[in-house]
């Protein structure tokens, strides 16, 4: 393999990787807060809200992400009457699908984190005179995020790999360019390069989360 050939395929692949990174960042930044809001909704004392949220989480976790993406990209526009208004840009539609799906997973992770916190923490806060908001923001949430960190790390690595699903809704990302080069040049080298780029991204992420775990170890 010549250096020239390598250069000719690496450029579009890095361009595709940019799309992958962009999707990853948008989804992480929006689905984590949304997931936490869902956690609170599940725990709400207003039962209909709790039930609706649980159904939402069940549907999102119980059906393939690919199906959800196809539905948002191609299904929504086919709905009678309102369908015309639901034609979204492919990338926007994909972001939406990923955010809605990942928020459901994060909601379950955070719920687990909250369950792991001893009720003594709430009692100590109450006796010291902290109000509900102070207890939540100063005592419960920091502990919840710490407990959830390994699971959030795991989910984030999965998200990097799931970005390859953009391929199915024809948003050009890393895998798309690799596949194009493989078909055009009849060589499997682009697949290896794609694999290495994914590995580099997940490695960076793993290192980042390991650092976060150490930073918030509290001992």
């Amino acid at each position: 393999m010549s250096v020239d050939y390598f250069n000719s395929i690496i450029k579009p692949m890095l361009l595709g990787a940019q799309m992958t990174v962009l999707l990853f960042l948008i989804v992480i930044v929006l689905s984590i807060p949304l997931g936490f809001i869902l956690t609170l909704a599940v725990r709400s004392r207003f039962k209909p809200l709790s039930w609706l949220t649980q159904i939402y989480i069940y549907v999102m976790r119980g059906t393939p992400l690919l199906l959800q993406l196809l539905f948002i990209c191609f299904g929504l526009p086919m709905i009678p009457v309102i369908g015309d208004y639901l034609v979204l840009d492919r990338f926007v539609a994909a972001c939406l699908g990923f955010i809605l799906n990942y928020a459901a997973y994060f909601a379950e992770i955070f719920r687990g984190g909250l369950l792991a916190i001893d009720k003594g923490q709430y009692e100590a806060s109450q006796v010291l005179g902290l109000n509900k908001w102070q207890t939540m923001t100063r005592i419960i949430l920091p502990q919840m995020f710490r407990i959830a960190l390994p699971a959030v790390a795991n989910e984030s690595v999965t998200l990097v790999k799931d970005t390859a699903l953009l391929y199915a809704v024809a948003v050009p990302e890393l895998l798309h360019y690799a596949q194009t080069a493989v078909n055009r040049d009849f060589t499997i080298v682009p697949f290896f390069i794609a694999g290495i780029i994914y590995l580099i991204m997940t490695l960076l992420l793993t290192v980042l989360f390991k650092w976060l775990e150490r930073r918030f170890k509290f001992d």
């Binding site: 100590a124 920091p142 502990q143």
Partner: peptide, 17 residues
């Protein structure tokens, strides 16, 4: 009224973070 009292628990309930 309850702020006039302090409480010490069996399991300490210190804030671990």
């Amino acid at each position: 009224i309850t702020s006039k009292m302090g409480m010490v628990f069996q399991h300490f309930n210190l804030f671990p973070h």
